[in-house]
Design a protein around this nucleic acid. Sequence first.
DNA 1: AGGCGATAGATGCAAGTGCATCAAGCTTGA
DNA 2: TCAAGCTTGATGCACTTGCATCTATCGCCT
Lengths: 152, 152
Amino acid sequence: MTEKAMPSPEAIKAWARLMRVSRQLVERAEDALKQGGLPPLAWYDVLHELAEAGEGGLRPFQLIERTLFAQYNISRLLARLEADGLVEKLPVADDGRGQTIRISAKGRETRRRMWAVYGRSIADLVGAGLSPDELNALSALLGRLRDPPVSD
Amino acid sequence: MTEKAMPSPEAIKAWARLMRVSRQLVERAEDALKQGGLPPLAWYDVLHELAEAGEGGLRPFQLIERTLFAQYNISRLLARLEADGLVEKLPVADDGRGQTIRISAKGRETRRRMWAVYGRSIADLVGAGLSPDELNALSALLGRLRDPPVSD
DNA sequence: AGGCGATAGATGCAAGTGCATCAAGCTTGA
DNA sequence: TCAAGCTTGATGCACTTGCATCTATCGCCT
């Protein structure tokens, strides 16, 4: 029985800024990728996770956990990535239902090219405006808003 | 024409948190509305602006400026709102192309009911985790990220 | 006035999302 | 061992979004 009351003015303002700024920044990063003829951010998220996972790859449900995408979304996103030759779907030895997704060489290359643009967007959009200390402070505050069960 | 370099680790972390937290919070607020059988957040944003604008209403292009929605998005969102009787489209005297959008009584009522749920979400999701001072600090940091440099 | 580019808003079509549900394989327990 | 239920991943359908383009009107300049 914690929060029954309406939000404080401070909470409303912080929420409003968070909504507006995040939407605006996503939009700009997305625009930059489009400008470069590159796939959307969602593809980067998945390619990034798969690149981190290495040759072992990841199961789709692990991607769901890591990325916050819905199950059906991952399913279709992986289908598109596979159609573009950026990932491979491999059968799993000990589970006939499942599959392992592994990033391909082309996938790594695409991720690299996306990062060249995406990374610059991040540098421009947040790195430019705030000092390292301020960025850390922002990260810390945002970290406190994550939900109980989520870790980094 | 500032940043050419790749982002600092601090910038990357702040960006990642911002992306993840904002997506998660939006999702939760959206879920709460759905749970209550209420329209999505986008409707609230528009109804809120129109309620603030009062009887004078707003032109669609003003809504675009205020909400960051794309033009075609506003156009169709307004069509849905009108179909639901939440807003009225009025002709503009001195501009035959345009229209003025005014919120209806039903629209105000819907907004009120949405706020009951949405406001509680805000209180739960951000008001609960951070003190007023921390919320102000967060708002200030986010404020510095608004209107970041645009490269044309 | 007449022409021309700019602005306001709508819309056809393709692609993505959300929801519900499905099929297949796995696991458990009597 | 086998039925019941869970997990993994795919998919049909309706709706929304994105893109490009269209129509209509406006404002300006000659």
